[in-house]
Amino acid sequence: MAPPTQQADAKSEDGSAGPSGLPDFHGDIDPDTFEQILEMDDDEEEREFSKSIVYDFFSQAQQTFEKMDQNLEKRDLAQLSSLGHFLKGSSATLGMTKVKDSCEKIQHLGAKESADGSKDEPDEDKCLESLKKIIKQAKDEFADVEKRLRQFYEPA
């Protein structure tokens, strides 16, 4: 997901918004990916379709994070990996680059691999330690994205 991120940065430097009037997400969201979802909205004011998807994702992510916490306590690495994979898919589809990258790391660590998946990491304690950090990070990243998106959909 590196290239989209770069593009996003480039765009934010330009200060230009996307064709859909997309606000500046500062690289939290890959504009290309997100715009093509916005394009699917029938009404650019209501944004019924994308809004429902994004908001559904919010609750889905919230639940997933809760489960991650539970499984952290249970030290269930496999479940953590699976949860990471799960959230990776939907966050990637929505263009939430940072969340997606973190989820991928969760997926790897849960599979007893290094965070980038390049080598095995047989030490469960190490994995769990890293998982704690990365899950926290993912939550923060998600919170950022959520805030921005809620602002986008419900400008105060």
């Binding site: 590196a2 991928e104 997926q107 790897h108 599979a111 691999e113 965070a115 998946g117």
Partner: peptide
């Protein structure tokens, strides 16, 4: 390898 696509 089920779930390790490269980080990018």
């Amino acid at each position: 390898r089920s779930d390790d696509s490269p980080a990018t």
